[in-house]
Each structure stands twice: as C-alpha cells, then as structure tokens.
Design a protein around this nucleic acid. Structure first.
Lengths: 205, 205
DNA sequence: TTGAAAAACCACATTGGTGTCGTTTATAAT
DNA sequence: ATTATAAACGACACCAATGTGGTTTTTCAA
C-alpha cells in the first residue's frame, strides 16, 4: 500500500494558506474577511481550505501565533547598547509600524480581539489572554534590568509602567487605524511618550 | 381631514427605540448586534423599527449622537478649582467608566469605529471623523488655559499632550474591554497617567 | 503499473440576517 | 360615527456566507 504526501507537504501548504489569509486580513480586516476571500486569494477550493482550518476564527488564531513567533527577542539586553537606547529604538519601530498601519495586521488584530468578547470563547483560547501578560512580563523584566544596572532610577514600579506603555501603543494603533496617521500625528505622540518614559524611568545618561 | 399621531409621538418613540438599542449594544457590542435583537428588546415589529432607522449603522450613529450631546462641558474652567484638580477629577471619572466597562458602550464604540474602515463610509459620516478632533481641541484649550493662568509650565506643546492623553485612554479601554479591569490593573495605570501628566504639564502647586 | 489513501474539488443544503411591501390596526379631525 | 391617514405588523424573497459530503484527482509505496 501507499498513501499520502510527505509530512512536509501539509505544513508547507498550511503556511501558504496562512500567507494568503494574511493578505486578506490586511486589506479587509477581520470582521469583513470571509473564508471565501481566503479561498479566492489562495486559489484553492472550499474543501481544501476547510481541510486545514475549521473556520475563520481558528484560521486567524493560527495566523496570530505564526506571526508572534517572530518578535519576542527585542527586549533581551544587548551588549553595547544602553537600555534607554534600546527602548528608544523600539518606540521608533512601533512608530514606523503604526505609520504604515494599512499594510499591517493591526486593524484586523483589534477587530479579532473585540470579536472575542463572547465569554465562552475567551476561555477556550488561553493563548489570547496570556499574550498581554507575556508582553507585560517582558517589559517589566526589561525595566527591572535597566534598574539593576543603575541606568534607570524609576519613579514608579516597573509593572505599571509596562502596562501603561502597552495601553498607549494600543490606543494609538486603534485611533490611527480609524483616522489615519496624519490625523493622529503619530510622531508627535511618540515624542510625548518618550518624554513620559524618561520622567518615569529617570534614565541617568 | 385628519390623520396622524402627534409630532411628539414620533420623537418619543424614537428615543424609546434608541434606549432599547443601547441595552442591546451594551450586552452584545456592535458587531454581533442585529436589527432583530433591537426589535426583540424594544418589543416592536420589523416594519416599525425600519420606519425609524434604515439599518444598524444609522441606528448606531443616531445613538452615538444622542449620547454625545450629554458630556462636552467637563473641560470648561470652573471657578474655585484649579485646572489640575479638574483634570484629576476627569481622570478618575474615566477610571470609573472603564472599570465598569461591561455596562457601557465603550466596546460597541470601538467595534463601530473599526467597522467603518471602509473608505466610502468614512467620508459619508463626517461626524465620526470630527469627534476626535473636537476632543483634541477641547483638551488643548484646557491645557492652554491652565498655562495662561500660570498654573501649568508645560514641557511640551499642549496639542501633543492632548492627543497622547486620548490615545492612552482609548488603549486602556480597548485592553480592558478585552481582558477585564482586574487584568489590566486600571487604577495603577491611572496613577502612571497622572504622574506623566504632572511631568508634562509641570503644574505649580 | 497499479491501487490504496489522502488531498482537492465543488455542488448543495442550511443558516441567519436583511430590507420590502401588502395588510391590519389605531388615531384624531370632521 | 365616519373616514383619511399614518403607524405597526409580519410574511416573504433575497443574499452572503458557512460547513458538509460525495466525487475526482494526485501521490507514492509496493
């Protein structure tokens, strides 16, 4: 006997489908995207797509995880750079990301998270709820490290600073997704953010 | 001859329907709410509801305007209170609002705004796009006033501070709508906000 | 080469909601 | 009372999208 294609094949195909889905989500957002759109974009039949993903929600969730496994390491201490330099760089990276928000998944992400308000769903996707916590942890650890080296003299505990930073970025993304980068004056706001961070962290430099 | 019910009647009925709709939007958000839900909640027939509102979008827009015509005057200078006291109060009011986010329209609002990403729609509803601008103006004027009286010694121009403040609040709302008020630690973040504002505005006191 | 098994196709039944429209009911001026 | 008129009703046709399952096509080991 002899069935089947290689083990590779399926995961490769899956990645292909995820990439097509990503394109769809970027242009249509989450709410207005459909399985049909993904089929069309991937040039694949209904049955094929459903063989890999049960529904749009699962599809998005997989995409989210796939994308996530990229970043993460931005906040591990780097030799030869001060923590303040690192965070300045990160802020700038966020700015660039937000300024070309039309070409990112930010909008779709917001929609996706909002669409999960359904109680039941939230609990069945622990991944979603731990994402925020993880980011808080990473930032908190980063601030703690900067403090330990004597570079920061924080005026507030590190964790609230971390949460505060996340809220601001999320809000700026939301507003910019809605109004456009010119209307929200992204770069001016980033200046204000850096000013605030400096005040809260009291970097020595 | 003689037709018709009173002129009052219709506007009264409309308000009734808007209130029913509000309850629906609070519990289901915007995306998952349907005209059917509103009919059920209001105890009214399909035809009746459509006689007042063409579709869900128009319905929400009218509700939004109806709700908006409440606030507005929070940032007009008040005799016997410093600007810093006023803004502290406002921040606290926001905190309370966000902490009971399950009973407000915040979630529905976010969803509604996001759902308008469609280019065409955005332009046909100038009200939506000017809402943000109006809030920026109000806050900017408020900061400028506090500066004119010598109470603030701002380290940044007032407008970026205003936008920055709005972004943070929007982000905190978004995250809290998604994760709940305990997970986001609303009050700690508000402390951080006040700290930042103090640093940016340099209030004398 | 052949044939078993999986991958892909696609037609179909189903769902859930929308907006319309002909009909019934209620209102109030005469 | 009568009657013109508008408000409210609810059945219906429609649409867009979903998920299923029987069929065809590929693939690859024997």
């Amino acid at each position: 006997m002899a069935p089947k294609v290689s083990d590779e094949y399926k995961t490769q195909k899956k990645i292909e489908l995820l990439q097509a889905a990503k394109r769809v989500f970027i242009t249509k957002g989450y709410t207005r995207a459909t399985m049909q759109d993904v089929m069309d974009e991937a040039g694949v039949s209904r049955g094929a797509l459903y063989a890999y993903f049960d529904n749009l929600e699962h599809l998005y969730l997989e995409l989210l995880q796939f994308e996530d496994q990229q970043d993460a390491q931005f906040f591990t201490p780097i030799a030869g750079e001060t923590s303040w330099q690192q965070i300045t760089k990160w802020v700038y990276k966020q700015q660039v990301e937000i300024e070309k928000i039309e070409q990112t998944l930010s909008q779709a992400n917001s929609e996706f998270f909002l669409s999960l308000k359904d109680q039941q769903k939230q609990q069945s996707y622990p991944y979603i709820t731990t994402r925020y916590e993880k980011m808080v942890d990473v930032l908190t650890a980063f601030f703690a490290h900067g403090t330990a080296t004597g570079e920061f003299k924080p005026q507030l505990p590190p964790e609230p600073i971390a949460r505060y930073l996340i809220s601001f970025i999320d809000g700026l993304m939301l507003d910019t997704a809605h109004l456009g980068a010119e209307k929200t004056k992204v770069s001016e706001q980033m200046e204000a953010l850096l000013f605030s961070l400096r005040a809260m962290l009291g970097p020595v430099q």
